[in-house]
Design a protein around this nucleic acid. Structure first.
Length: 431
RNA sequence: UCCUGCGUAGCUCAAUGGCAGAGCAUGUGGCUGUUAACCACAGGGUUGGGGGUUCGAGCCCCUCCGCAGGAGCCA
């Protein structure tokens, strides 16, 4: 009977078949230890020369790292085996023994080499558990919106020249139509949809042709965006902190083993609950100036500025009401202070930086046209977007959450390229 | 795009301008409870490409290529 390693605890003493791979092998001459994985976990197969059939023992000698095998054996509890269970092997079917040495050794690899071997690196323990946490983050995100009565609206990946700005769109030929672009945000489409469904979200890939070369940037990354009709910027912030709390708590509940393998300090995650601290941009600038930063009111916050602010807290912090001049054209200016907009950026703790960008959107037709013109954007490519302000326009707000940045923070990993199965960066499109 | 740094064995890294090395991996042998197993022996090199300085270059200079980190921008 085929049994997955995660179910071994329910089959102690039974003879079962494990279908998997050999990730390491140790031998003392008269006893072999096969380190086995099957996608659900890892375990150890043991072959003692005096107990097992001669032919099986000899066959096991031939195994190399990453051989694929079907192993028959009896499940035993044994504290000497990692995980507490081991398989006393009685039969061995070899599907394939690699003809060449497996490229990824047991230690000592640089990132460049590992990224070239990404298709194999995903088999490694740490990468496996990062992807398990990513899976849970996405599952929890969808569940959160389901529970809150949101409707999933899948926004297009091919778009015309519409979005937040210019210059950073990937361009491609689109039949006789001319140029099409890969989306850098689904927000404008979600704004359209929220006028029908009220509460909407998306979750999919987005593309930025920015020549960013840091551990926080990918050219293709996954984003969850939400948009809610009649929400103001404060409703918006409450929604964000509830979402992040829900995600973190679900990862803590469902990924304890992964977080342990990743050596994540979970005490830094278990306190992530509302309310999150809220700091106005004005106060942020004051704080930075007191600490001797050169920042002036009106400047955008730099990466180092964000780290200093987030280090003040052990929860994500929401910095709100940035200067209008540093933010996108569609953000609603504060009616009492038009020099700032009703936006917020959520900065993750421990120096992980911005994970959410959010704002209330302009709902007034004339004001939106004015802002598009002030930003020197082509008015005619926003025709349908402007339409939304002609027919039953209402205040509405939304945000975008970077999936990979959230994965980085929750896993406590160093670089965003490990937070996505196959990273696309400035200088890498393979594998 | 700009700034900084790196490129030597399959991998990770050493080597005052003076004989190109180690650990891991691989191969062979040994070992009855291993935990990145261990022990012994062996094979393994156009020092990223090109040019220059020098009696002599892995090392210094020029140039090209590849990569990494950071800035800006953003999620």
């Amino acid at each position: 009977m085929w049994v997955y390693i995660e179910d071994f605890k329910n089959h102690i003493g039974e003879t079962v078949t494990l279908k998997g791979w050999v990730f390491n092998k140790r031998s003392s001459g008269k006893i072999h230890f096969l380190q086995l994985r099957d996608g659900t976990g890892t375990t150890q197969g043991i072959l003692e020369k005096v107990k097992v059939e001669e032919s099986v023992f000899e066959k096991a000698k031939e195994l190399r790292i990453e051989s694929s095998v079907e192993v028959e054996g009896v499940i035993r509890e044994d504290s000497r085996s990692k995980g507490g269970y081991e398989l006393e092997v009685t039969g061995l079917k070899i599907l394939q023994i690699p003809s060449e040495e497996y490229p990824i050794a047991k230690k000592d690899h640089g990132t460049e080499f590992l990224m070239e071997q990404r298709h194999l690196w995903l088999r490694s323990s740490k990468q496996y558990h990062i992807m398990k946490v990513r899976n849970e983050i996405i599952r929890a995100t969808r569940a959160f919106y389901d529970n809150q009565g949101f409707t999933l609206i899948d926004t297009p990946i091919f778009t015309g020249a519409i979005g937040e700005g210019a210059g950073n769109l990937f361009q491609l030929d689109y039949f006789d139509y001319g140029k099409a672009y890969l989306t850098q945000t689904g927000q404008l489409y979600l704004e359209a949809a929220c006028m029908s469904f009220g509460k909407v979200y998306n979750l999919g890939p987005t593309f930025r042709a920015e020549k960013s070369k840091t551990r926080r940037h990918l050219t293709e990354f996954w984003m969850n965006e939400a948009e809610v009709a009649y929400y103001d910027y404060q409703d918006n912030m409450r929604l964000q902190e509830e979402l992040i709390t829900y995600i973190v708590q679900n990862v803590l509940d469902h990924c304890a083993e992964s977080l342990a393998v990743l050596e994540r300090d979970t005490t830094k995650l278990s306190g992530i609950k509302p309310p999150f601290p809220r700091v106005s941009y004005d106060d942020a600038v004051k704080l930075l100036q007191e600490k001797g930063h050169a920042i002036q009111w009106g400047d955008d916050l730099g990466a180092e500025d964000e780290t200093v602010i987030s280090n003040q807290y052990d929860k994500p912090v929401m910095v709100y009401k940035y200067p209008t001049q540093v933010k996108a054209f569609y953000m609603q200016p504060d009616p009492e202070r038009p020099e700032v907009v009703l936006c917020d950026d959520m900065l993750a703790p421990e120096g992980y930086g911005e994970i959410i960008g959010a704002s209330e959107r302009i709902h007034d037709y004339a004001l939106l046209i004015k802002r598009i013109e002030e930003n020197k954007l082509p008015l005619d490519s926003y025709d349908w977007y402007l339409d939304l302000r002609k027919y039953g326009s209402v205040p509405h707000s939304g945000f975008g959450m970077g999936i990979e940045r959230t994965v980085c923070w929750i896993c406590g990993i160093h670089h965003i390229r490990e937070a996505i199965p196959f990273a696309r960066t400035l200088y890498r499109i393979q594998p």
